[in-house]
Design a protein around this nucleic acid. Structure first.
Lengths: 250, 250
DNA sequence: CGTTTGGTTGATGTATGTCAATATTAGTGG
DNA sequence: CCACTAATATTGACATACATCAACCAAACG
């Protein structure tokens, strides 16, 4: 489970190039930093966009808004995540990206990154890796939305956020409490359920002593129980932390 | 909408490199061809895998099977699609890939493709492009599963398949009939609904004269109506074919 | 402070699931 | 080519998870 830079389970020969790529991109981006408040739109849907970003602090999300008012948070970006990498290849993004909390973002013009990408295999690999990591999450999320009920989906989400924060914050497996800067309505728009039903599941978790979600903070009282609920939906990469899983000898 | 090679809406300066990359990959892969029957597993979940594939004929799908019997088809691959590109970067795939019909697949060892990828920017671009295209579909599919009802999801799927077949077969916008080599149960496992409910929606489309789905063949009787149902879920890239859309002057 | 936004809860409606029976199609061996 | 079997499709009756609506409450906010 130890994973120094958050690049889990890749082909081992890629370990060093990935780290180098990370460092190089960091160097390229660190000059231009943007500070944003919550609910600010970074990228408008269906418009030209020239930047690639990296989250230094705070949360953001990719959201698709339908004409009739429905909305879906497709992906949530946490500190350390690179996003809008596709700006290098496509002019328009069909979805918007907005902040969820106060956020500090590094940005880079797609042309500069693409030059680096073209001229430096490490940078190219790191970019491709980010896209693959997003794809992995999307696969899981499709499965979750297609097969999971509301309770499984929320459990999976809370476990997923925890896992990602453990890596990006270096907090370690003892992390049982974290900020979750999303309203229940936003959670619903990510989970594919109504805000009212999010509330009911949250209430149920609270009453069963599993987890508390309150005033944008999560406390996991029983990680084992939460993982047990989410387990059917978790892929091998996400099961991790064997001390919490229900079948220690798998 | 004319789009010679199926690479829609990328940055125009990438057009030529993409086509060159496509041709080069084709050259690399065409030597080793596999013929498979329906429902054969190409890639087992959670195992090492060394190949990257391209569909020459037939359909395949990426599927995640849960321990309790549920299953989700995450993506469907049609002729022309490159898949398992991530074999170049990760050793294990958490999902399986299986054929849906008789299929002819080209394959290449990930190391050979990665060598080409590392040494040739056109190949790298074409691979990255495939991943981005998958990601785009996944974004739409997440939105569909999260926000669409059963009818919208099926309509969107039928429209999506049609659009992809128009491109890969060069059939043109007149295409209103195509093979759909999936059982209603498999459709349900992709749409996130039960086989029984798939049947009800299919029946409803048939009775309303919108589309017929029968014995693995689809006939679209009223593309405009189908598109109208799917429209809220379609992103700008998918709306296309303005003569069929309900708001011609958007 | 009042106003707005988000959270909580109950009553009720509905889309979709489950179960089970039957019909149809496809597959297989004789 | 037929007869048998298994797989898939179809339909109805019933169950349920979740949505919707509406009221109220609590927290955040200017």
């Amino acid at each position: 489970m130890s994973d120094s830079a958050g690049f889990a389970l890749h082909r081992p020969e890629l370990d060093e190039p990935l780290k180098r790529g990370e460092a190089k991109i960091l160097g390229l981006m660190s000059k231009s930093v943007r500070r944003l408040g919550p609910n600010e739109t970074l990228i408008n849907a269906n418009t030209e966009h020239d930047y690639v970003y990296r989250v230094r602090e705070g949360w953001a999300g990719r959201i698709r808004r339908l004409d009739d008012g429905r909305a879906q948070f497709i992906l949530i970006f946490l500190p350390g995540d690179l996003f809008a990498v596709k700006s290098m290849f496509v002019t328009r993004h069909p979805d918007a990206v907005q902040t969820l909390s106060d956020a500090v973002l590094e940005q880079i013009d797609h042309r500069r990154l693409r030059d680096a990408y073209a001229g430096d295999a490490d940078v190219a690999l790191r970019c491709t890796w980010q896209i693959l990591e997003e794809e992995r999450r999307l696969h899981s999320w499709v499965t979750s939305l297609g097969q999971g009920d509301a309770e499984e989906r929320l459990a999976m989400l809370l476990v997923d956020f925890r896992g990602r924060l453990v890596i990006s914050s270096g907090a370690g497996d003892s992390l049982v409490e974290y900020d979750l800067p999303m309203t229940q309505e936003q959670l619903g728009d990510h989970l594919g359920i109504s805000n009212v039903h999010v509330n009911r599941v949250v209430k149920s978790f609270r009453e069963r002593g599993i987890a508390t979600v309150h005033s944008k903070r999560v406390t996991l009282h029983d990680v084992a129980a939460l993982t047990r609920i989410a387990r059917p939906l978790l892929d091998v990469y996400e099961r991790g932390t064997p001390e919490y899983s229900s079948t220690p000898h798998s």
